[in-house]
Structures are given as C-alpha cells and as structure tokens.
Amino acid sequence: MADPAGGPISSSTDPSRDPARDVTRLLREAASGDQSSHAALLSRVYDQLHAIAAARMRSERVDHTLQATALVHEAYARLVGDVRLGQVDRAGFFAVAAQAMQRILVEHARARGRVKRGGGMGEAAARRKIPLDVVDLAAEDDPEQILALDDLVRRLGEYDASAAAVVRLRFYAGLSVEQTAEALGISERTVKREWAFARAWLAGQIEREGLDADGA
C-alpha cells in the first residue's frame, strides 16, 4: 500500500514559543513549494493529532469513538489558536491535517490489525460496514475497513486528483461542503458533484470487489 504521507514522519521542529506564528510561517513556505516546510508542518500537525487522540483514548475508555473531525478541529485550535488565517493558509492547514489524519488512521488500523488478525470478513459485512462519511477511530470498527478505504481513496487519486482531494477533506478532515469549496478554491456545486460521484464510485468499488484490504 502506498504511503499517503510519503515516508516516515518524525518530529523535526521544536515547538517555538509562539506556535501559531510558526505554523503560519510553515504554511506560507509550504504553499510556495518548500518541501521541507511542508514536511515540518505535516510532522507538527501529525504530532498534535496524535497527542490529542492518545489523550482521548485514555479518557474515553469505554466504547470510544474518536471523531476525525473533532481531532482535526482541536488540532487547529491548538496550533493556530486565535490567529486569523487567510483562506489559502486555512486551506493549506486542512489539506495537511487530512493527510496527517489519514496517516494516523492507517497506523492505528495496522497496529490493531496486528493484535487481532485472522478471520477475513465476509463481502456483505465489508460492504455494509465501510463508512463512507467520516472516518472515525472507533474501537469496534474493523481495522481492515480503514485500510481498505485508504487504499480505495489512493486508487481514486490515481484516476482523479480533484475527486480524491474532495474525498480527503470530507473524510479525513471532516470539512463541510462550504469549507471544502473554500479550501480547494472551487464552487460548492462542484464539491457536491465531485463528492456525490466519488461516494458512488467508492461504494461501487466496494460492492464489486468485496473487501480488498491488501491493495492488490
């Protein structure tokens, strides 16, 4: 399976005393094509999401579900705080957050998949259970689903970068139609059309192939 984040992520930047300013700077640099700033930003967002998720996992022991949307927005609050970001910077943040969130979900799924292996799920169960709304870190969810979905979204991206971008922001960052439109600089109508199409395409793939979690 392709690595959505493109390589191992490690914490390479020290949180400065003014994290919001630092994040803003990284966003600007990343937007102007600076790869190392993009990597630093990704690692910063990833670390923050990871910390929030871990804290919540500890405190909501029973029957917990971690909502990707909530995590991403909490990370935003912590990293950006009250600083008012321009549209382009916000868009950049959410794109990176979606990428980091996808990465976390996949790692979480892999880790749990190692714990409870075996027992491939039936085709019908897979079809029923793959959530095509927002991906959560749910205790009951089969890790295979998250991996399968990750693979499908990656595959969609090979055909159609714009549809995949909409899907990532909606799935993994939990953005609304309006926010997605703003983040991608396209109209809300286009977001809806791409989203409707992508959902139907993904659902169709799941139906046609059953669960294909190995990315074969």
């Binding site: 927005h73 909490e74 009250d82 927002v134 809806k192």
Partner: peptide, 26 residues
C-alpha cells in the same frame, strides 16, 4: 452508481456537514 447517489441524496449525505463540530477547546 446513480442508485447509490440517489440514496445518498435522500439521506442528506451529500450536503451534510459530516458531524456537528465541537467548539474548540482553545
């Protein structure tokens, strides 16, 4: 695919904000 989309549309899955967003804790 059109059948799936019609179903999505009927349950408001296309327009809906995925979930209510909690107020950020800041």
């Amino acid at each position: 695919m059109l059948a799936i989309a019609a179903e999505d549309q009927a349950r408001g899955a296309i327009d809906a904000t995925p979930r209510p967003l909690p107020t950020p804790t800041g």
